[in-house]
Nucleic acid binder design. Sequence first.
DNA 1: TGCCAGGCATCTA
DNA 2: TAGATGCATGGC
Length: 283
Amino acid sequence: MAVKTNGTLEYDAKGLDLQQTLFCGQSFVWRQCGPQTPNEYKGVAAGRAVLAGCQGNVLRLRPLEGSGPLTRQDDAFWAHYFALDEDYEMLHSRFARSARLHTCVREYAGIRVLNQPFFETLLCFIISQNNHIPRIVGIVERLCQAFGPVLGPGLYGFPPADVLAKATLQGLAPLRAGFRAKYLLDAAEQVASGTIDEQTLRALPTDEARRQLMRIKGVGPKVADCVLLYALGRREVAPMDVWMKRAMKALFPKGMPACAKGAEGIAQQYIFCWARQNLQAGS
DNA sequence: TGCCAGGCATCTA
DNA sequence: TAGATGCATGGC
């Protein structure tokens, strides 16, 4: 039980590194707090707004100004969001069987693959296509401000699908999302109408779930795999973007070693971060 | 100032 | 069916 009497949540962080996890490119909804609290981050997911910080091996979440105390429902939600229910110690020991993966584990041991809300993740990765991370963050912010619920002073959540589905292309123009605006509308319409249903996707085999996701305009293999990995808990898929391909080629010229099979999602999250630091500078 | 980005849809051969 | 091209916008 992580709920404290002062309305905060405290967890055994189990080695979680917030900086590595929140800013390695799997989520676009977290912001670093001011210079006074450099190790604290504010974020919103599923209409829940928190300040998150790690002290030693304690992950502490507290409500943002204007939102109420955190509850038992928040407790379960955030524990799963930060993957505190996954056995990373076991995964690390599996990765360590490969010399190269061992390096990834050593450098990025604190990275967790987050379990993010489905519709939010879908929108974020539609926005991400052919785009830069700073601009993705900006578009997401404007999307929430324009269509999301007010959670506190200057604080907005993601718009629900039915709200966004009622918007028009003209209405989305201030987001400056470019050609992606029509894709956002199609995603919202299909989710709002039930054509795309999260629970149905969860029950489907991964390949079929991917096919269903790709019926949304603007969702191809890359975006679908990101949604499968980050929102639907499919750890066997890989978001094979440019960096990933480069990293895979650099790390595993003869293919992924057998020891990493079954955990590629997490392994590749490590590789992704390794690639961002090492390949960006060197290639 | 111009290239190009964590893709995808559409067109053409 | 595979390869080429255009897309909106803005970061760098």
